[in-house]
Amino acid sequence: MSANPRDMPRREGAFEREPARRIFASELRECRYQFKDGDDEKSPTFVLLPTGERSNRIFLVGTLTEKTRQGEQNVFYRGRVVDPTGTFFIMAGSYQPEAMQQLAKIEPPQFVAVIGKPNLYQKPDGSFMNSVRVESITVVDKDTRDLWVLDVAKQTLDRVDALKAGTGKDVPKAKEQYPTIDPAVFRKIAYDALAQIRM
């Protein structure tokens, strides 16, 4: 590999890990648009959130309600993690051995914290399916779940405000891709989620 910094678009020192976005299940369910940033084979893939932010990774905390082992030769696990607004579909296969072992050990129901990459699929009937490829999953307590709901509500409201103000570089793209979505919906979602905890 060349040592000349100008030959490398992403320098070693300039590497930034993609942040894990905070979104509720009901917002992830609305995602319909996925894109690559750059033409490189290894360029990161992003799911565009309707609230106008790109997401290559998400952090979620909820209740693991179900897990199934699938496949014979290539074993993988699927699971459902429920938050106050809906359900995240998670999966871990042999390409994520650590995550698969972690998931294999957890017996639902449990509060879990999941770090993973969102993926968007179009089913043969044309409908969309969002799932999260797990990088890591651990059992946590209810306090962590409640903190997560506060965190996601705050960041969702921040995004809704930025969307209204038109700031943020992915806002125009979001308006183009999700012309029919009213940001007020996500304000309501945040309110309902907040209202469900500690009441």
Partner: peptide
């Protein structure tokens, strides 16, 4: 560790509910 702050909870509820 971060602990749950009910003041923050209330403030967020107000913020989310206020402008809807």
């Amino acid at each position: 560790k971060v602990t749950f702050d009910s003041g923050e909870h209330a403030a967020l509820l107000n913020r989310a509910g206020g402008a809807s």
